[in-house]
Design a protein around this nucleic acid. Structure first.
Length: 602
DNA sequence: CCACTAACTCGACACCATGG
DNA sequence: CCATGGTGTCGAGTTAGTGG
């Protein structure tokens, strides 16, 4: 008759040896249940050591606190209970600053790599190892800014894994992390803590106006130094603002709101001031713009500043490609939660957001909209858009868009000034340069880099610094050199001597006087200036951009354009010059080409 | 510039594994 | 036992690359 095995005889199978003492952060205050604490720490260890542990038995309460026993889930035999086991217990270290997890192990791993879902009809599922390898390669690819596609991953794997498994694993990964690397993902809590703290810190250089953590990390930061400088310039009205969104590296999208227009440095150059820095991952169409505009408004309001007269949005590049990505699907499937917020600012929505569902891009490429010419008088401006509007309403495939476009434009458009995206583009490159040298792997890395950059940009430009080439690349100008409005007269140095000036963010350059420029050009035969004396005023006409000769009588012609008093007169003149092209059976259209030619613009 | 194709993405659904 | 998560499959739609 067989004797019942004594516990001591069976025990050898469970002879645990200490594997390691693993330090981990102390449990937070709200993690009170020691069992939960131990369990999460055990999982954390398993993850850090790429060890699949599962199937925990009921926890036991011993003199050492709770003890958890689980087994390796990686191999077939382990899973069946004939392999390796793990035992965990833990507690605060003696110095009380860390949590020490004691990991014990018993038995050896045995059996083949366990196949997940062995019952599936298609054959084998991926193994744990498969998944780990795929995820690892995916991380590497993403960190290097290489598209993380099944093919790419497959090419980088050292062994063969079924493509459909790779695709499925990647899909799951995308669902969880999007395009973020796991390191970026892991840095979220740190970021969140800072975000909370920073939201109310009105003294800091960077302050959150918006942030969201889930499901994606996105934020808008206000850049205090530039807002304050702007406020100092009041009551001069803001003329225009350019919003620019662009890709910042592979893993996220950034936005810069730029007070591009007419912040004059030394009274003649236009420079950019970043007021808001925003990060908007991925595919939110125009919500990013809308959000940034909202933030901008709120801060203006908070500071009691007057809204800008013009608002330019670089919607073509930012919005169009994304749009296609979503074509054909319903609109509601975005994130319902965020929609509600846009409503508050709906008085001046982003152009793309209203129009008909998805049919906009062709219009946006129209030169009439994207490069409307500089028109010298209010009357010309009026006529130009009157003709164009009619054309849009009657000939363009989407009349609704025309209505929308004009509704939203009417309020802030004016003649004369066309804010160029160029400063915004340059600014963005500048920002990228500043960020590039720093390794940005975690959310806070980016914030730190931005903080450094803002510090550099916002240093005061003293008179001495303005003259020398060395020193910081500040975007600030000397105090008396900044204006929000276009100067009415040239500075004295422009007339007489020229000057050496350091442009914001750039190196110093010598700028000759206007006289010198003209003389030099004349000497090379490149410029011709036509003079027109009218009563008590003198007009000069010269080509801008390309140095071409001014045709005989051209100054007079331009003068006549300016002098027209009524719409009918101007229209007649424009028709005669071929600016307005009439065709049978359809509304007239503006010929930008002719217009440019006569303006002697390139 | 255009058409064609292979590669890719995504959502929906079913089903199983895992953890509580 | 239930909730959650990971995987396979299918179909629809998009994108990038290639060759004319």
């Amino acid at each position: 008759m067989e004797v019942v095995e004594s516990p001591s005889k069976r025990r050898p199978r469970f002879q645990y040896t200490l594997l390691e003492e693993y330090p981990l952060p102390l449990p937070a205050a709200d993690e009170e249940d020691p069992l939960d604490v131990l369990r999460t720490r055990a999982f954390r260890w398993a993850e850090d050591r790429s060890q699949a542990v599962g199937d925990f038995r009921s926890p036991q309460w011993t003199s050492e606190g709770y003890v958890l026993v689980g087994k390796c889930m990686k191999h077939a035999d382990c899973h069946a209970g004939k392999g390796r086991f793990f035992k965990f217990h833990g507690g605060q270290a003696e110095n009380l600053r860390t949590y020490i997890l004691s990991v014990w192990t018993s038995g050896e791993c045995a059996g083949e790599d366990r196949v997940l879902r062995p019952t599936v009809a298609c054959g084998t599922g991926p193994t744990h190892q498969d998944r780990e390898d795929v995820l690892q390669v995916a991380d590497q690819l993403l960190a290097r800014n290489v598209p993380c596609t099944p093919t790419n991953v497959s090419a980088k794997l050292k062994r063969l894994i079924e493509p459909k498994h790779i695709a499925a694993i990647l899909r799951q990964r995308r669902k969880q992390f999007g395009r973020n690397t796991s390191q970026l993902q892991a840095s979220v809590p740190e970021f969140e803590a800072w975000a909370v703290a920073s939201s109310n810190d009105y003294e800091a250089d960077l302050r959150f106006a918006r942030y969201e953590i889930r499901p994606e990390v996105l934020w808008g930061l206000l850049v205090r130094p530039f807002w304050e400088k702007l406020q100092e310039l009041l009551p001069e009205p803001l003329l225009d603002v350019v919003i620019c969104l662009d890709l910042a590296g592979a893993w996220e999208e950034g936005g810069v709101v730029q007070d591009g227009g007419n912040v004059f440095f030394c009274r003649w150059t236009r420079s950019f001031w970043p007021l808001i820095l925003a990060m908007w991952p991925g595919n939110e169409d125009n919500e990013a713009y809308q959000e940034v505009v909202d933030v901008f408004r709120e801060e203006l309001h908070r500071r009691g500043m007057v809204p800008p007269k013009q608002l330019h949005v670089d919607w073509l590049r930012g919005a169009q490609p994304r749009r296609r990505g979503r074509a054909g699907r319903g609109r509601g499937q975005g994130r319902g939660g965020r929609r509600g917020r846009g409503v508050a600012a709906a008085e001046q929505p982003c152009p793309m957001q209203q129009g008909p569902e998805r049919a906009i891009p062709p219009h946006l490429t129209s030169p009439a909209l994207s490069q409307s010419p500089v028109l010298a008088t209010m009357l010309a401006f009026h006529l130009f858009w009157k003709v164009t509007l009619r054309r849009m309403r009657e000939r363009w495939p989407d009349p609704q868009f025309a209505n929308y476009f004009f509704q939203s434009r009417r309020r802030f458009s004016r003649n004369g000034l066309r804010a160029s995206q160029q400063t915004a583009e340059q600014a963005w490159r500048c920002l990228k340069r500043q960020l590039a040298p720093h390794e940005v792997c975690a959310h806070m890395d980016l914030i730190q880099a931005l903080r450094r950059t803002v510090q550099i940009w916002s240093q005061p430009l003293t008179d001495e610094l303005a003259k020398c080439d060395k020193g910081v690349r500040t975007l600030m100008a000397t105090r008396r050199g900044v204006h929000l409005q276009r100067p009415q007269t040239p500075d004295p140095w422009m007339l007489a001597d020229g000057q050496t000036i350091r442009r914001p963010g750039g190196l110093q350059t010598y700028f000759p006087s206007i006289g010198t420029i003209v003389n030099k050009s004349k000497a090379r035969g490149g410029v011709s200036i036509q003079r027109l004396d009218m009563r008590n005023k003198t007009f000069l006409a010269m080509a801008v951009g390309k140095p071409v000769a001014v045709p005989q009588g051209h100054a007079r012609k331009l003068y006549d354009f300016l002098a027209q008093q009524t719409e009918a007169q101007l229209l007649q003149q424009w028709q005669a010059e071929g600016f307005v092209v009439e065709a049978a059976g359809e509304p007239p259209r503006m010929s930008l080409k002719a217009l440019r030619q006569v303006s002697l613009l390139k």
